[in-house]
Design a binder for these strands. Structure first.
Lengths: 149, 149
DNA sequence: CTCAAAGCTTGAGTTACTGAAGCACTCGGT
DNA sequence: ACCGAGTGCTTCAGTAACTCAAGCTTTGAG
C-alpha cells in the first residue's frame, strides 16, 4: 500500500463519496435548469434520451424504468409539443418517439443554462478534462453493465 | 509525461455528455442496490445524508427538495426503524433526524453491493483514482454553489 | 407583551413509478 | 393458412415523491 510522497491514493469509500456528491450536485443543476423551462427532471432526461428516434421499449431501457411508466412521460412531452410518436415501419406494434424542433431547442437551452456545471468545467485544466473524459469513457461500459455481448 | 499528439481536449458538450452518462449509470447502480433492501432511492439518499444527526430543514437542503417532502420520507425511514426523530436541545421547534444502528448497517450493505460501481473503480489505475478524486474535490464547491462565504 | 418569522406538519393536487392485465401485432411450427 | 407463444404498448390500481399553501408551535426582537 504505502504510496506516500505527495499524493495519497483515495480509498474506494472516499472515491464513492466524492462521486456521489458530484453526481448529486450535477443532477440538481440539471433539474433546476429543466424546471426553469417547465420540465421535470424525468421529462428532461427523457428528452435527452430521444435526440435520435427511439422505440418506447428501448427508451424505458435507457431511463432504467418500466415501460408503462414511459407511456405517461411521453404523453406529457407530446402534450407539450416537445416530442411525438410515430409508427415504426415494419412492425406495427412499435411506436417510435421522435423529438420535435421545439424539443431540440428547449433541450439546448437547458444544457446551456446549467451554469454551475459550466463553471465547474471551467475550473479544469486541459489535462484534467482529457483525464476526466477518458476515465468516463473507460468506465462507462462496466458501470452500465454493457460488457461485451 | 507529456501528453502525446493522440490526446484531444474534449469539448464542453462531450464532457457533459460523458458526465451525464456516468452519473446516470452510477445512480441506477445505487437505486438497484437500495431496492434490494426494500428502499427507494430517495429513502436511501436520505439515509446517506443523515450519517451524522441533521435537522429536518437542513436535510431538505441537502436533498434539494421542499421541507414538507422530507416529512414523508423520514416518516417511512422511521417506520422501518432506520432512523428516528429527536428533539433539539435549545430549540423546541427543531427535530433532528438520527440514524439508527440498523440504518447504518443497511447503508453499509447498500454501498457494499454497488457492484458495478466497484467494478468500475476497479478498472482504474492508482493515478486515475488520485486524479479523479482531486477533480471531484476541486469542482464540488463550485458545482454545489458553495463558493466561499 | 406582541408580533413577525422560523421549523415542522397537514392537506390538496400532480407526477413518477411498479406490477398486473389487456389489446394488437409478429412469427415459428404444424 | 392457422394457432399459439411471445413482444410492444397502454390501462388500471396503488404507492411514493414532490410542490405549494395553510396551519401550529416556538423563538426572538422590539
Amino acid at each position: 500500500m504505502g504510496s506516500t510522497a505527495t499524493t495519497t491514493v483515495p480509498t474506494n469509500g472516499e472515491l464513492m463519496e466524492a462521486l456521489a456528491a458530484v453526481g448529486a450536485a450535477y443532477f440538481q443543476d440539471f433539474a433546476a435548469a429543466a424546471s426553469r423551462h417547465g420540465l421535470s427532471s424525468s421529462q428532461a432526461k427523457a428528452l435527452g434520451a430521444v435526440q435520435e428516434p427511439v422505440p418506447m421499449r428501448a427508451l424505458a431501457g435507457r431511463l432504467g424504468c418500466d415501460a408503462s411508466n414511459v407511456t405517461g412521460i411521453v404523453d406529457r412531452l407530446e402534450s407539450l409539443g416537445l416530442a411525438h410518436r410515430e409508427a415504426a415501419a415494419g412492425d406495427r406494434r412499435v411506436k417510435i418517439v421522435v423529438i420535435t424542433e421545439q424539443g431540440r431547442e428547449i433541450l439546448g437551452l437547458i444544457r446551456g443554462e446549467m451554469i454551475r456545471t459550466h463553471q465547474a468545467i471551467g475550473t479544469m485544466t486541459d489535462e484534467q478534462r482529457v483525464a476526466l473524459h477518458s476515465v468516463c469513457v473507460q468506465v462507462l461500459p462496466v458501470l452500465s453493465g454493457r460488457t461485451a455481448p
